[in-house]
Every structure is written in structure tokens, then in C-alpha cells.
Amino acid sequence: MTLLKLSQFSCLRDGEPLFEPMDYTLSQGDLVQVVGPNGAGKTTFLRSLCGLYSEFEGSIFWKGAPLNPSDFEFLQHLFYLGHQTGVKKTLTARENVDWYFGLQDGASPQSSEELLARVGLSGYEDVPCQQLSAGQMRRVALARLFGSQRQLWVLDEPFTAIDVLGVAQLEGLIQRHCETGGSVLLTTHQAITLPGVKSWKLRPCIREEM
């Protein structure tokens, strides 16, 4: 099934297109790496798919209908991990994870312990996040991914600050997600070793005068 379809899509910055208009389709089970040089608009592109950036031309279709970014049904299928992960430093790892699932899924506080154990944070559940390292903070954010039931994962640089072992584990998770009918859109500057990665290229528009 087709989840997302882009037609003649390009993000705008100050009214100028950031990259050349593109047509792509994302189906269930697809793993897509968005590639492009620094400043090509990868983050802006991902944000606009999530409804966080609204200056674009062309159209986005979600399951065949024009995407309405505040649509309840769409938001229940979307997982977005941005550069700023939304992990609150004054809260503990457990509180952060519980809040996330409460807010996003309407879930009651549950087995965040198990999720945190899967990202290698057992024993750190009740430590305020400001005492964790950068990598561990990212892991708190990734713990949500391990518990996510959502269909479309939009991950902006998910491998940042994660060690080799963590990267392998995360790749395994992404692969399983795709095999079971989910779809993943991600950006990374690391080489992905997963089979079947498609790439969407953003070709920067050459600005005539700088």
C-alpha cells in the first residue's frame, strides 16, 4: 500500500525553492534514505512531511488523500525524531518515556523499564537526564522508537552520538519495522548497511546570485 506520495514537491526558503521539485512514492515496507549535501534541505523536507514546516510547493498525499498535517489519524501513524529530541533534562529517563507514550499514544504509564533496558539504560531509569551523557540522552529518545507501534517513522539523523553497537541494534530495529509493514524515512551521513535501502536525492537549486 502507498503511504506517502509526493508530486512536484519542493520546500521553499524565503520564497525560493531549496531543491529541485521531485516525485517520489513511499510504500509499506520501504526504507528510504534522504540524501543530499549539507544545506540541501533534508531536515526541512522531513519537517514539512510531519506538518512542522508549511512553506512548500507541490503536494503531499497520505494514503491517497491530500495530507492534512493536523489530521488525527495521520498523527497517530507518525513517529518523528528530530535533531532536538524532546528529552527534558530535569526529568528522569523513565518520566521522559512515560510522558512521551502518554502524550502520543494516550497510554497509561507502563513498562518503560523494559524499553530503557533495550537501549542499554537499565539502572538509569530514575537518574535525571541532565546527568546522562549525550549518547545516553539520545538513547532515551530512541527508547520511544523501541516501543512505537506507528507505521511511518521519520528519523532525522537517528545515529548521531550513538556507539557502534547501538547503531547495529538500531539498524536491526529499523529493518524489522520495514519487514513487518512499516516504513522508514531517514537522513544520515553514515553508510547504512541494510539491504533494500532506497534513496531520495535532494538536488539543491543553484542560487543565481548570492
Binding site: 501513524h77 530535569t90 518520566e95 502524550l103 497510554a107 504509564p109 535525571p128 519495522h177
Partner: peptide, 27 residues
């Protein structure tokens, strides 16, 4: 995979948000 079900529990979401804000304020 199971597609996410649409039984979003509003009161759980509100409770989680209130708990978070109060915790942050008191810390």
C-alpha cells in the same frame, strides 16, 4: 505490524501532560 489503533485515551494523555508540567515546575 499492527496498525496503530485509534483508541487514543484522552484522559491518559492529559494526565501525563499535567504530571510532567508539575514535575518540571517543582524541580
Amino acid at each position: 505490524m499492527n496498525p496503530a489503533t485509534l483508541d487514543y485515551n484522552l484522559s491518559n494523555a492529559l494526565r501525563a501532560s499535567v504530571a510532567r508540567e508539575l514535575r518540571i515546575s517543582t524541580r
